[in-house]
Design a protein around this nucleic acid. Structure first.
Lengths: 168, 168
DNA sequence: TTGAATTTTCAAAACTTACTGAAAATATAG
DNA sequence: CTATATTTTCAGTAAGTTTTGAAAATTCAA
């Protein structure tokens, strides 16, 4: 397989993969393109490579920057802006975990705390089922929250070597 | 807060939460409803509680069954079918992990293996960047695959007590 | 069998999300 | 400044996804 074809397949699969994780296809493709590009790219480069409009590139790049996955790079003597992605996959994963934890897990735990204060007789089976479900999710959610905090601070080597042993 | 309101909030947030994870809103809501329902429900119950059509309930229930999260229950002497969800959250999480691993992670690893066979001079910086990215993702992906296998086999207590200690 | 109850299917409609492209805003070089 | 290059915005449109609802299929009691 030629590089051009392999790159295309990678970009397109990464896009499809993203859609299973609540990430829009184009944003994932731009990220993939930057991951396999040794040098920073301009918006025009991305428009050309992915066949998408300027507005589309612009909005998705901004979103990738918000996620902390892409950076603006200013090349000396160049008028245009360039963009580059973090290449260390372990750092990328940690960054995504950090953001999703903040955006999704933490608000969910807050909601569950509130829902646990529901009024009603704990002998009533509907109340009981509700509290059991909410309580169960909360317990696992808190555990995940703490575990992810530790992971975010960890080094890849630590993860790969220690965790593997534990899980054996 | 009254139970009715708390249940509604739970169901609606669970639906919103699902959409961030590539799961359709209604499917997540049906799942949430079944989680907080002590007894099995019929399709008509769900239509009434969630204000959705029969076809919609039917298709999403089938999908939840495919995911292994919901079961058909036949009550003796009843013509209608009833449905119930697994209530143990740890089991639910393991089941979801198992399915997503099979549906997403494994095919992705296969693709990466194929992409690594790309032709070309490894001194070429484009080839190198491509191989580095693909190799890096593969390494972490394989690690995740093994770790998740172990998790799927684990008991919740094991997870909660042992893993916490490790991560301290 | 028959027919009433129930479930399943799927084309069309409704809804949601993503994308385009041109205009407005901003930045920079001369 | 002024002119030009570049980036940003966003209303309108396109594309994609979900939902409806009624017809077809299935199930089952009598």
């Amino acid at each position: 397989m030629k590089l051009t074809e392999a790159r295309q397949q990678f970009i397109s699969s990464w896009g499809a993969f993203g859609t299973h994780w609540g990430i829009n296809r184009t944003m994932a493709q731009i990220h993939a393109l930057l991951l396999v590009s040794p040098d920073p790219l301009t918006q025009d480069d991305m428009m050309a490579e992915l066949n998408i409009s300027r507005g589309n590139v612009n909005m998705n790049i901004r979103e990738l920057i918000n996620w902390g996955l892409v950076e603006r790079v200013l090349l000396p003597g160049e008028r245009k802006e360039y963009f580059t992605a973090e290449k260390d996959i372990w750092k990328v994963v940690k960054q995504i975990v950090k953001e999703r934890k903040k955006r999704e897990l933490e608000p969910m735990l807050q909601l569950l705390d509130k829902l646990e204060t529901v009024e009603g007789d704990k002998k009533d089976k509907d109340v009981k089922a509700f509290l059991d479900t909410v309580g169960g999710i909360k317990k696992l959610g808190r555990q995940a929250d703490r575990t992810l905090d530790t992971m975010i601070k960890a080094e890849e080597n630590w993860f790969v070597s220690n965790l593997v042993k534990l899980f054996k």
